[in-house]
Design a protein around this nucleic acid. Sequence first.
DNA 1: ACGTTAACTGAACAAATGTTCAGATCAAGC
DNA 2: GCTTGATCTGAACATTTGTTCAGTTAACGT
Lengths: 195, 195
Amino acid sequence: MARKQGSHAGITGPKVREAALKLFARHGYAAVSMRQIAGEVGVQAGALYLYTPDKQSLLADLMREHMEELLAAWAAADRGGTPPERLEDFARFHIRHHLDRPDNIFIAYMELRNLEPENFREIEILRNRYEGSLVEILDAGAARGDFAVPDTRLAAKAAIAMLNGVTTWYREGGRLGRAEVETIYWDMLRKSVAA
Amino acid sequence: MARKQGSHAGITGPKVREAALKLFARHGYAAVSMRQIAGEVGVQAGALYLYTPDKQSLLADLMREHMEELLAAWAAADRGGTPPERLEDFARFHIRHHLDRPDNIFIAYMELRNLEPENFREIEILRNRYEGSLVEILDAGAARGDFAVPDTRLAAKAAIAMLNGVTTWYREGGRLGRAEVETIYWDMLRKSVAA
DNA sequence: ACGTTAACTGAACAAATGTTCAGATCAAGC
DNA sequence: GCTTGATCTGAACATTTGTTCAGTTAACGT
């Protein structure tokens, strides 16, 4: 047997990335073998190399895609307005975005150490850019007296860490719904930086 | 060559755990080989099995030790008092404890997925116990009107996620000192649950 | 209908993995 | 000084790892 029926690169390519994302998030980059990914896709391990030069690129590409999508999505969602308004938008956007992509955040925040130096630097820049957009909001609000934060960079890190935490425990159909979770987190964040 | 000079189980045993902790935290459980751990200790791979039945137990033991130490340390540090006082104690204790043990928290919160089911359940219980002590404080404070938290379990998770974040960026000799960081985090936490 | 080529298989590769074990070596007690 | 037992080496093991590649198949343009 060789080429399967009804299979194209246009189908298999995304399937490979989806499978890798799912498995990396579930078990960690190092714990997942190319054969497991291939199995998930329904293909032999060798076929994966039609869609990625190697395993490391698979991880780096997934992380880059995620970060670029995140930055673009926030750029689109940012409605401007006063710093408190923008902060609320940011918090709700961040939670909503990641609850829709729980696997993404898992690898984006846990697999940095498995990136080779060159890839690491690239992803770190994207990450700092995203974090920077929150710092910017906090700076603007602090200048106007909306927020009382002794160090906006630290506050941004603390805020993102808190918001990210949601994906580690939130389960669809659980005790709390999305809207509730979103509002409760936003409320905590709002108060934590309040003047 | 065989037995090295001046080496005892009393020395090598802890060394093995230290090396494993350091390497697991740095690169992740799955990415670290027994030979790397042995190399760090200054011993051959086979010798590790004098101190652990297998690699999995090494991880599980490290996590259990960490959680038990954490629980014991908090039990000793908890001075009682009003809920706001206890919350402050908890926050400061948590940050201080983990800044002293950055590697521990890394594996305790990132390697859960690499535990076999039996070990996972055991560690999860310890983790819930620790988280429960924070929930308890929040419940008591909410009942007295000290805190305004719509869901104490969620608030506890959010708080711990925020506090844990400190170990991902804090570096000794950096822009901010320990005491400053501790106070800023406590201040954010205090406000985030304030009535 | 046919040839071309993209998509995939299946086997192979060297290297690395966790783990075992017979034997070598040293420290300590008699 | 000899024996004993704890401590470690070094080689071996079966598997699994990431990756390559010659060959096979099926879809598509002509």
